[in-house]
Design a binder for these strands. Structure first.
Length: 709
DNA sequence: GTGCCTCGAGTTCC
DNA sequence: CTCGAGGCAC
């Protein structure tokens, strides 16, 4: 034991050792307490250890560990979970619904790898568990972190909760020093039933389905509640590894089993698509007797070397696919068809349904996409669902696309009454009365009211405060809408947000007297707004809500122009379709004529321009911090990218290269210094060879610019 | 012109 | 998540 005097006398090295020891001791104690119900130390000792840990951390803040016990179980319950950046992105899977999709999947892989039809290509097939994915990080065999998938790049830290799941080992003997194990947390049918009976007895809410129950249980702020819930875990994948788990998918899964994880017993190897499809039918037949929910079968290329060669698209691997079971359907009728107006003026029809349960969830709305869909045609005028139109009062077949978005699959025409009438899509905006027009070749009808239309104005404001834009704490979509409709403190356009505090002060500070508001909440809101007066250029460009300019394009533009004045000057000077400014816009990789025109219009149309000017006058725009390119290994070089890139998109690659002072060209010439060639590179690689231009692959490029994979 | 691949926009429910 | 469409390579 180490007392306060010891801590005061500690050297940094001693402190680091002490912290490591405490982390281990407390983690073991936690594990024992949460999983076995058999504490290895008593509460007083536990608290004393924890205090020591905190005291050492206070004296040596730089030594605080990533797995610090002060951030874990037993720590006071904080609001929300911490964020965890995954060492390797958690990908999602491409979906397939038909046998043909699977044949194409295999063909795509053969083509990409340049394999002959006659050569062997092995796969694995396993049930796709319907739960939620989890990434477990082990260091030297010890579980140090568990994180949910989140958006794939950043998830939530649910370490304390994961420790309570008995299928998840606290310690793995013989594991690589760094090992991220990925898999699915789920609840069995039996456990789900029992839990709901218990919930009912305690007067707690019932869960709609095992998946929701599992998700709700894992995301409890109090790990003790998670502990009382019967969660299970199947391991099927991995992230960062300090050394490999095997040469093939099958070997790696076997290894995970050896290390103490549950792996799904229905995982098998297959040597062609026929075997994959046979296993699919087999699992489909067993589906009802498995005792847990699955929603399809996952196929993966077995050879990990081939997996590495195939690599990833932006969000999915090329070497795996999920063969989904047909979606569950339900029948109900349409009580009404309503029109919503979006930020770009798009009129979107929504069917109000007689509530019905589909896949364990009660659905009362379903999207009808657009005018053509209601009329029974697709965007090109081709009939869908046999060309039947959709009417108010129709009995319809509903399913949840991707198990999420409710959609109308088909109409039962035989149940139509004699007075049934075809739906007439409005030609004027239901919100503002302006003309709603459909441009040639567009499937969407749009309100022409612009900012005059209250619906568009509100949606634009909601976009402005959204997460990837200004992200003002305490000013979400609900609040924005309330302020929009407030007579005294109205927010009609983005600039009004930044004058809110002054206007409220001039108005005798009435905000704090509103329903649900007080001194503190008003003060917090004003502070949060002030905080966002300084805004990075890319966020500002995205927040403007210009059509065709999403988060990604905003980043490209910010990268190119680096600061607001440069961006504004070009857009102000640009003419639609011609001139040097237009050419500069078009020269940006990822910007084409449609986006360029949308940008130019928004800076020339007087209403939108003055709204932008009023906003920018309130802000301090943070320019993009350009790295100093002196000493950059590629400064001044002319680089060309070809073939498919795996670690980054072409646009990202170009932006990064430019940041480092390189020029990026579209084609290989005598002036080219370097060609970065991914798989599938064709004529350019040949030309480079002819001209004697140096050719490297993506990994070598990343190494060159100092970004290791 | 065709055929990927990505992105943008709009959607529901918890 | 899905659809449509923009952008780019061939």
């Amino acid at each position: 034991m180490t007392d306060a005097k010891h801590i005061a006398a500690m050297t940094e090295a001693e402190a680091a050792i002490a912290l490591a020891g405490l982390a281990k001791q407390l983690a073991e104690a936690n594990a024992a307490y949460h999983t076995d119900d058999a504490p290895v130390i008593d509460d007083a000792t536990y608290d004393a250890l924890k205090q020591q840990n905190a005291a050492i951390e206070a004296r040596f803040p730089n030594l605080k560990r990533s797995d610090s016990p002060s951030d874990q179980v037993g720590a006071p319950i904080s609001e929300g979970f911490g964020k965890v950046t995954h060492a390797q992105r958690m990908m999602s899977l491409d979906n397939a619904f038909t046998d043909e999709d699977i044949v194409e999947f295999a063909a795509r892989i053969r083509k990409f790898l340049g394999l002959l039809d006659s050569s062997r290509l092995d796969f694995t097939a396993e049930p796709k568990i319907d739960g939620l994915s989890l990434s477990l990080r082990y260091e030297n065999g010890q579980l140090v972190q568990a994180a949910t998938r989140g958006d794939g790049a950043v998830g939530e830290n649910v370490t304390a909760n994961a420790r309570t799941i008995s299928d998840i080992p606290e310690f793995c003997k013989d594991a690589p020093e760094i090992m991220e194990v990925r898999g699915e947390v789920y609840m069995s049918h039996d456990d789900f039933q029992t839990l709901n009976v218990r919930q009912n007895k305690n007067g707690d809410k019932q869960f709609a389905n095992p998946r929701n129950a599992a998700a709700g249980s894992l995301r409890q702020l109090d790990a003790n509640i998670t502990k009382s819930r019967p969660l299970r875990f199947f391991a099927y994948s991995w992230g960062e590894l300090s050394h490999s788990l095997g040469k093939t998918q099958k070997e790696a899964i076997k290894r995970l089993k050896y290390l103490g994880f549950s792996t799904n017993p229905l995982t098998i190897g297959c040597s062609d698509t026929a075997e994959l499809l046979a296993h699919y039918r087999d699992i489909e037949a067993k589906r009802a007797t498995l005792g847990y929910d699955i929603d399809g079968v996952v196929y993966k290329v077995n050879d990990l070397g081939l997996q590495a060669r195939l690599g990833f698209r932006s969000t999915t691997p090329r070497w795996a696919i999920a063969h989904k079971f047909p979606a569950e359907i339900a029948h109900t009728f349409i009580e009404a068809i309503e029109i919503q107006v979006g930020r770009t003026g798009a009129l979107s029809p929504v069917a109000r349904l007689k509530p019905v349960t589909v896949g364990g969830v009660v659905v009362s709305n379903a999207t009808l996409h657009n005018e053509d869909y209601i009329a029974g045609r697709d965007g090109k005028g081709q009939p869908i669902r046999g060309g039947r139109d959709i009417r108010v009062g129709d009995w319809v077949e509903i399913y949840r696309a991707g198990d999420v978005i409710p959609k109308v699959r088909d109409v039962d025409v035989s149940k139509r009454g004699p007075d049934s009438q075809a739906y007439t899509f409005p030609k004027i905006c239901p919100e503002c009365g302006s003309d709603a027009v459909r441009e040639e070749g567009d499937s969407v009808r749009r309100c022409t009211g612009g900012l005059i239309c209250p619906a568009q104005a509100v949606e634009k404001l909601k976009h402005f405060v959204s997460r990837a834009a200004f992200d003002i704490e305490g000013l979400g979509s609900k609040q924005v809408e309330a302020f929009f409709n407030d007579d005294q403190l109205s927010i009609r356009e983005p600039a009004d947000i930044f004058s809110l505090a002054t206007r409220d002060a001039a108005n005798n500070s009435k905000l704090k007297n509103r329903d649900g508001w007080g001194d503190k909440s008003a003060e917090n809101l004003f502070a949060a707004i002030e905080e966002k007066r300084r805004i990075p250029l890319n966020r500002l460009i995205f927040a403007l809500g210009i059509r065709h300019v999403g988060e990604n394009s905003a980043n490209l533009l910010a990268n190119h122009f680096a600061n607001w004045p440069a961006f504004e000057t070009i857009l102000t000077g640009a003419q639609n379709g011609t001139g040097t400014e237009w050419d500069e816009l078009m020269s940006i990789d990822g910007v084409g004529s449609v986006m360029a025109a949308a940008l130019v219009n928004s800076f020339h149309q007087s209403n939108s321009r003055s709204s932008i000017d009023r906003l920018v006058a309130e802000l301090e725009v943070i320019p993009l911090s350009r790295a100093d390119t002196t000493g950059s290994p590629v400064a001044g070089l002319t680089v060309v990218f070809t073939g498919s890139l795996e670690q980054m998109t072409r646009a990202e690659a170009k932006a990064t290269a430019e940041t480092l002072g390189a020029k990026v060209a579209g084609s290989v010439s005598a002036k080219t210094d370097l060609l970065v060639a991914g798989p599938g590179a064709g004529s350019k690689a040949k030309k480079a060879a002819d001209l004697g231009v140096k050719v490297i692959d993506e990994a070598e490029w990343l190494a060159l610019i100092g970004r290791n994979t």
